[in-house]
Simulated scan of single mutants.
Amino acid sequence: MLMTRASSVLLIIDVQERLAPLIHDGPRVAANCAWLAGVAARVGVPVVVTEHFPAKIGYTLEPVKVAAAGAEFVTKECFSAAADGCLEPTAVNGRRQVVVCGTEAHVCVQQTALDLRWAGKEVFVVADASGSRDPANRDLAFARMRHHGIEIVSREMVAFEWLQRGGTELFREVNREFIR
């Protein structure tokens, strides 16, 4: 199945101030989450950002927050944002496809993705925009999610599927601003 702009929502999970420095290759993960938020905004895909106990773990990293301007921000206590109920009033509820990224891949990303998949959503986890403290845990999470029917994709796969075709003004804008 392909990701489409009309069916998708981008869900950024817990890219937070006190957790991010502990994530393996954390700056790249955070930058890729911000990149995805920028592409989503440019092509008209809604963005939802979760924060797990922000008073203790910190708030969303500033570059992600800036890129996700206009996004819906929600606070959660459960590892799975779907179990927490905080996603119900957001764009996640109204879209068939959920593109997920963030941290940690083997905890909050995985539990949210699995719950969304079991709820009947088409779920895509962006590998180069998801991380864990230990890369082995991240890799195990990707394998487990794939086993349960979740697509593991790259940020460029997301962008090009949302764009659908080249030669349009939108493609030229996204290509100029994000891909080159």
Rank of each mutant, 00 (worst) to 15 (best):
L140P: 14
Q97F: 04
T103S: 14
V107M: 01
R133F: 11
N137M: 13
D128L: 04
H106S: 00
V100G: 06
F142S: 07
R95A: 05
A113V: 03
A136L: 15
E122K: 01
A127I: 15
D139V: 15
A113H: 08
V126P: 15
C101H: 07
P135E: 09
G131D: 05
A136M: 15
R133A: 04
F142I: 09
H106L: 02
E122F: 04
V99H: 01
N137Q: 11
F124S: 01
D134N: 05
W118N: 14
Q110V: 08
G120D: 11
T112Y: 09
V125L: 03
A141Q: 07
D128R: 05
D139F: 10
S132Y: 09
K121N: 01
H106F: 11
R95M: 09
V98G: 00
S130F: 10
L140H: 10
L116I: 04
E104P: 11
C101K: 08
V99N: 01
K121D: 04
A127G: 15
D115G: 10
T103M: 11
C108Q: 03
Q111N: 09
S132C: 12
V100S: 03
L116G: 00
R117T: 05
E122V: 01
R96I: 15
V126W: 15
F124W: 08
D128F: 01
D134I: 07
R138G: 10
W118I: 11
V98I: 08
G120K: 02
R133C: 13
D115T: 02
E104C: 02
G120I: 10
A136I: 12
V125E: 03
R138N: 11
K121I: 00
C101N: 08
G131P: 12
Q110I: 12
D128P: 02
R133G: 05
V99Q: 00
D115F: 09
V98S: 00
W118S: 15
A129K: 00
